Amino acid sequence: MRSDDELRSAIASARDALEVAVGHLDKIAKADIVMEDDWQDVSAAVGLSMALHREHMARVGVLLGLGGAQQRLLRFLLRHVGQVVSGPELAGVAGIAEWARRVRELRVEHGWPIESGVQSPDLRSDQYILLRPEPDEDLARKWRLAADIRRHGGAVRDRILAYLKAISPEAADREDLDYVTKTGTWKSSIDDLRADGWDIQSSDEDPQLAPGSYRLLL
Rank of each mutant, 00 (worst) to 15 (best):
Y163V: 02
D192V: 11
M1F: 13
I33F: 07
A146N: 05
S188I: 05
A100I: 11
R144M: 02
A171G: 03
H56K: 14
D191A: 08
E137L: 05
S116K: 01
L78E: 15
I96E: 11
L77N: 04
Q208W: 15
P211F: 04
D138Q: 15
Q119D: 01
L217Q: 12
H24W: 13
L217F: 09
G212N: 11
I200C: 05
D178R: 09
L161N: 05
D126F: 02
V46A: 05
W99E: 08
S125E: 13
E134S: 09
V62P: 02
G87E: 14
S189T: 07
A31C: 03
A10M: 08
D5P: 03
R72F: 03
V156F: 01
A97V: 10
L209K: 10
H53R: 12
A51L: 13
G197P: 02
L164A: 02
R54L: 11
W143D: 07
R2A: 15
R59P: 04
R157Y: 01
L161C: 02
V108H: 10
L25P: 03
D41K: 10
R159M: 00
M1V: 07
R159A: 04
A10D: 14
E19D: 11
R102K: 14
D148R: 14
D26Y: 12
V46N: 06
V60Q: 14
V118C: 02
T185Q: 09
G111Q: 00
P211K: 11
S120R: 12
D38S: 10
R101S: 06
L63N: 08
I190F: 03
I167E: 05
L77Q: 10
V62F: 08
L131Y: 00
V42I: 13
E115C: 02
L193E: 06
S189N: 09
L216G: 07
Q40K: 10
K27M: 09
A147M: 01
S120L: 02
E134L: 01
G197S: 07
A155Q: 15
V34R: 12
A97N: 09
E134V: 03
L123P: 04
E205N: 11
W39R: 08
R104C: 00
L73R: 06
Y214E: 13
K187C: 00
G61N: 10
L25V: 15
R174F: 07
R124F: 02
V118A: 04
V60D: 00
P211C: 07
